[in-house]
Every structure is written in C-alpha cells, then in structure tokens.
Design a protein around this nucleic acid. Structure first.
Lengths: 167, 167
DNA sequence: GTTTTTAAGTCAGCCATGTTGACATATTTT
DNA sequence: AAAATATGTCAACATGGCTGACTTAAAAAC
C-alpha cells in the first residue's frame, strides 16, 4: 500500500519539500503555542501546567501513572507541576476505589474554567486555519500528522476524529 | 467515511476535531523532535544548536540580526549557543564587506556534516510519513500548517533555495 | 502471612534554554 | 560631531526537563 502510493508522488520526497516541512513544523508549533503561553503567563503558570490540566480535563479520574505515560516525563517533573495545581485548587485528587494506592485526578471548577480558556485559544487557532482551507486539506493534515507519530504514541491519542458523525 | 466529501465544512469545527488536532500537534512535534535530540545529545549539543546550524546552513552568510529575527530569541540566548558552535568549529564568522559591523555566518565542513546528519533524521521522518499518505494529503498538511502561522511568520519561510536579499 | 512489587511522593541537585537589564565597542548614518 | 545600529558581554533569574536515593502505603505473589 505504501509502495503503491509512493510511486504517485516521488516529487514530494525531494529535499526542498522535506526541508520546507521541517520548517513548517518548527514555525507552526511555535506560533501555535505562543498565544496560549501568553495567557498562561498572566496567571503565572507555564505550558507544563496547561498540559496537565488539558489531559486531566480530557480524561477525568485519570491516575498519575497514566498521566505520566501520556506526558512522557518523570514523576519528579510532574510532581512539581501537579503539586502547584493542587495547591492552587485547579486539580483535586481522590483516592482510588479499587486500588487505594492510586490518586485519581479531576479538574475543579476553577481548573475547568482555566482549561476551557487556554484550550479555547488553541481551538480558535485551528478553527481559523481550517476555515481557510478545504475539508480535504484538513483530512490531509491529520493523515500526515498521524503518520509522523511513533507507533507507541498512537494509542495515546483519542481516535475517531473525522469520520464519526455525531448528531 | 465514504460520504466525507458531502460533509459540510462546519463539521470540522466541532470540539472533537479541534481537540484532536491540538493533541496531534503536541504528540507529533514531540515525536518529530525526539529522534534528532537523541543524535544531538551524543555530541553534547541541544536542539537550540541544531536550529542555529540548520538556519545558517539554509542561508550561508546570514548575519546575526537576521538569524535572531528567524529564531525569535534574545541575542543573549543566541550568544550562548553560537559561541559554543564557533568554539567547536561548527560555524565560522566573517566580517561583513559592505557593513563591517556585521558578522556573516557560515557552516564549516564539520558544521555541514552535522547539519546533514541531524536534518537527515527529520527529513527521513517526513519522507516516511509522506510515503504512507496521498499527494493530496501532503498538500493538505502544508496548507493547514501555513494557515496556522502568524502573519509575520510567513515571510520567514521559503520554498526555493536561498534567495537572500541584502539591502 | 510474610515477602515482593507497585503507585505515588519527596528531597536534593544538575542542565538546557529561555528571559531581563545594564553596559561596551565598533561602525554607519545623520 | 552626534546618534543610531550591529554585535557582544556580564549577571541574575525562571521554567521544565533530568538523575539518584529514599519513603510510605497498598496490592500481589509466594
């Protein structure tokens, strides 16, 4: 399958297209994160705090091990960020029911509000970008981004992006 | 999946698609950079060094101001990285001819070799990704990534080799 | 039922790479 | 001659990664 498609567009494997893509990755990621960083800064939080809040918001009741697996950082690094978020009442933790060693993480109302505000900035950027391109372009974007991932990253992603039509 | 083409564009602006894109950005960027970081680490260099080497390699003879404008960091931050690269003979600097205050930057042979090796890792990742998708997907990827950029970032990108204009 | 493993947390310190502010030097522009 | 520009430097600080060593409580294995 990959081989069949390869023959369709050797043109794009040329040095120039690949370098252009590398640069797009650098610049787009930087611009994408900069806006949200500014908003976080006003609350004296960093990008790391947003990541934690984001993923706890995405999966309420997630435990620390699972969060570490997603973020792929050490527990010491997470601890610094998470402690702050708990202390400032963005996140609360409950003891696990089936396994009492676990700490299950939830956003507080304050946390939900912050998550919404910051993530909104990033959603808005994508919404604007998607408005200026075709639906096929969006599909292509997702296909390429997925293809860039390590195999082990795929299970960490929420599936069912485009195709599920929810009404 | 079959009737994607008949879907209305606003479908893509729904919460789920936007959040999925945010996550793709996070995970894809992380996986994209991790491989190259490992190779740099073996030479005791960081991502910041690669950026400098990359952009000097892209535009030989670039001066410090232009480089700062691309990287969008302070000259103090650049200095730390650039000094190391010059000291270790990855980059050399010549005095500008028309403006003697300028330092024009060039990769040494060592620098070119490193730039090639590290950038190759990233080119390979994109080459592999592109092989697994269609040519339209690649176009879509580029269109969306461009649309994500700040307006002021666009002029920093180029498709064709070095058309640096010194004025 | 004791031992081992696991989930989570903590203390201490290191490193890379960003930041600000203040200032110096050479060169170009006005 | 004065002002602006290009570059560089010293010093201090913040963020968010890292390693290593160690603790506690609970679950799992024996």
């Amino acid at each position: 399958m990959a081989d069949l498609k390869t023959s369709h567009h050797p043109l794009f494997l040329r040095e120039e297209e690949l370098r252009y893509s590398i640069e797009l990755m650098f610049f787009a990621y930087r611009d994408f994160t900069a806006e949200a960083d500014t908003m976080l800064e006003s609350r004296e939080l960093g990008r790391a705090h947003h990541r934690v809040i984001y993923f706890v918001g995405r999966a309420p009741g997630i435990n620390v091990s699972e969060l570490l697996a997603i973020l792929n950082i050490t527990k010491q690094s997470l601890s610094r960020v998470l402690s702050r978020l708990i202390e400032d009442n963005y996140i609360r933790q409950d003891q696990g029911t089936t396994d009492k060693r676990q700490r299950l993480l939830y956003l507080t109302e304050t946390g939900k509000a912050l998550e919404h505000d910051v993530t909104m900035i990033q959603r808005r950027r994508f919404a604007n970008a998607f408005k200026s391109v075709s639906i096929e372009d969006v599909k292509g974007f997702m296909a390429v981004m997925e293809a860039l991932l390590d195999d082990k990253t795929l299970p960490l992603l929420r599936r069912e992006p485009i195709t599920r039509i929810k009404s």
